[in-house]
Design a protein around this nucleic acid. Structure first.
Lengths: 150, 150
DNA sequence: AATGCAGTTAGAATCATTCTAATTCTAAAT
DNA sequence: ATTTAGAATTAGAATGATTCTAACTGCATT
């Protein structure tokens, strides 16, 4: 309904830009773009509701259902990642570099940690023969340096 | 306040047995024991609701709220583990050996995989100095050998 | 026996997410 | 330019998972 205000210049229309990643692709509609941009500009792993809040400043009429919709599309296209650290709300992350999530059990903060060496899960764990791995999610729980200092 | 810690050997009733693990302890009430036993006898990472179903054969009147209650107590005592692999229901696991979870995205099955080498997360990821780790959760997603064969 | 408190319960309440049906928009075909 | 089919979007309802509430039970200490 909100006919996007400022459409990108070159394209026939803002809708027709696609981004191919990992073999998949998504139509980057204005809302999907905004959701993606908001997430890409966040380092705090926001929830769907927090993303709604942030997108609202640009698209005041966007609905929560649309945010979920956009997030689902972006996730299945591999443009963002879904993170489950606790019960309750899912969190999202646009950092596509290989990384793991550190979750502070005291303040709830989630920090990305990047690898300093090659990590191959099959080196450490015995998976049944024939298993195919598509992705690994490592969550490290504990106390962040700030909370530990107190 | 669970009465006196100095309650020695002779157990006046089934309620009074405790199990100390990792510094924490729980009163193993009959329900908590049953919930624990059901989980310990399962290898499929059941949800709270599935656990309710299984406990019902022994305690037909147990309620879902009590199951959640027991699971929370057992979890915070370190007797069982909470597993988050997907949106939706949490799953529980009584395997306390170091292991990771393989999640088949096709059939939904969750398989425990055990280590064949020492795994030290700090060897691979740069965490801010001062971070304290209490536990790590590694989820490996993919296709299990059965599904991959098809 | 009286008291106090943890454990238990059913059901209500809440929270997160998904679904539904109506509507709007886009892209391709006329 | 118009039509058309299908995708996107919406508000609100519905569902599902979990937590909360208030009442009740039963053990354990007084």
């Amino acid at each position: 309904m909100p006919p996007s205000p400022s459409r990108a210049p070159a394209k026939p229309s803002g809708l027709d830009c696609r981004l191919a990643v990992l073999g998949s692709d998504v139509r980057l509609t204005p809302h999907r773009r905004e959701v993606f941009d908001v997430l890409a500009g966040s380092t705090d792993h926001p929830t769907a509701y927090e993303i709604l809040d942030r997108v609202k400043s640009r698209s005041p009429h966007i609905s929560l259902a649309t945010v979920y919709n956009c997030l689902d599309h972006l996730t299945s296209a591999g443009l963002i990642k879904l993170v489950h650290l606790e019960r309750g709300q899912s969190r999202y992350c646009a950092n596509l570099h290989e990384h793991v999530h550190f979750h502070c059990e005291t303040c709830g903060k989630v920090i990305d940690a990047h690898p300093n060496a090659d990590f191959d899960p099959t080196k450490f764990w015995n998976l049944p023969k024939g298993t195919r791995i598509t992705r690994t999610d490592l969550a490290i729980h504990g106390t962040c340096s700030g909370c530990a200092a107190k």
